[in-house]
Computed example of a mutant assay.
Amino acid sequence: MNVWLWIGVLILAAWAAHWGADQLLTPLKMLRKQWGLTASAGAAFLAIVTASPEVAINITSAARGVSDIGLGNLLGSNIISIPLMVTIAYFASRKKFKNNKEHQKHLDANLLALNKRSVAVLSIPYLVIIALVAILTLPKAWRGLQPIDGWIMLAAYAAFLTHAIIKGREKGENVEWDKKKVWLSVAGAMAIALGAFFIVKATENIVSVLNISEIVGGLFITGIMTTAPEIFKTWSVVKGGEVTAGTTSVIADNAVTMTIAFFPLALVTTPIEDFQLFWVNLAFVGLMPLLYSLFVHQSKELHGFSKCQIFVFDAAYIVYLLTMVFFVLKLF
């Protein structure tokens, strides 16, 4: 198969994996209502499913002996996701919502509305997770992803989820379970597994044809493709009036990627072959939620991101690309 056919397989597999995640999301949304979780706490809970394609990809890459694809996917998706989803959410929120005076205030001030609680519930704990990954993987004596690191990161996600639920618990609702949706969830789980296999298989073949390293393929092929379908979900959720949920879910997804998706790569022991590439990417993984936290903290009465701050997110990603092209990969 030539490279264009594998690109087609990659796109179809990515959509299949995210379709599967959408089907699995329904029962978890019902549990969120039943347990009375707020938007921020619910995002942390629902991320178990919304980030499942990334987790499945890393399980597949570890099983197939191409862990560098999974490592690149882990880093690449976490770098692009925040600037991309925040930008999409900003444009999707530029409309009036009926009977929502608070949103109208944000619209008049040209801000992307955001609940300040999301910093304490999601972004600061996510920064702690990134710092923990750095401590476990960067020192020379501990360099690389090892089984003990994986168990530590699983414990870190358990703490992250527990913290989010405790911080964001309200009175629950009665919900009715639909058998059809439950069966669709089963089909969704199968689609995620199948999609993940073909995403990894397609990436293997594309990097082979293009003669690039597996980790670079994971960064710029797998990582971007697994994030792309989230554009439409974020747009839809925010356009529907759930601005905070649509904007904060990306933080929760990234926390799952850096912990649960970290586990299979650590379990098979993934060495860091290119240390400069790894630490530069990890630095930008940390920069994005740091900007997120600082900007929300700076907001006064109306919490959220200004147009200028949205531009800074996008500019940070452009700086990342330039750093990779000219200083890390040295393509020019």
Rank of each mutant, 00 (worst) to 15 (best):
V209D: 14
V175K: 05
G246Y: 06
E214R: 08
A252E: 00
V256Y: 03
I166L: 10
W235D: 11
N254L: 03
E170K: 15
A245C: 00
I224G: 04
G172Y: 01
I166D: 04
I215K: 12
F197N: 14
I221Y: 07
T248N: 10
T227S: 13
G168E: 07
V238H: 03
I251W: 01
T244C: 05
G172N: 11
A193S: 13
I224R: 02
V209G: 02
S208P: 00
E242D: 15
I212V: 15
G223C: 05
N174T: 14
R169H: 13
A252Q: 02
I251E: 00
E170Q: 14
I221N: 05
G223H: 03
L194A: 15
D178F: 01
W183C: 07
E204S: 06
M225W: 12
K167A: 13
A202N: 10
A228T: 15
G223M: 05
I251A: 04
T247L: 01
A193F: 07
G168V: 10
I231S: 03
V175G: 00
L219G: 06
K233R: 13
V209R: 09
K179Q: 08
G246P: 02
S185V: 08
D253V: 09
A196V: 04
F198S: 09
I199Y: 11
G172R: 05
G241C: 04
G240E: 11
K181L: 05
E170R: 14
I206L: 10
N174L: 04
T234F: 03
K171D: 08
E242R: 11
L219W: 11
F232Y: 14
S213V: 08
E242A: 14
G218D: 09
I231K: 07
V175H: 04
A191E: 12
A189I: 06
T244E: 01
A189K: 07
E242F: 09
T247Y: 01
E173W: 01
K201I: 08
N174Y: 09
N254C: 12
N174W: 04
G240Y: 05
K201F: 15
E173C: 09
M225R: 02
V175F: 04
A196P: 06
G172V: 07
G168Y: 01
G217A: 06
K239F: 01
W235Q: 10
I221R: 05
G246I: 12
K171F: 00
P229A: 05
V237A: 09
V207F: 11
L219T: 01
E170D: 14
L184C: 08
I192E: 09
V216M: 09
A189F: 14
G168K: 02
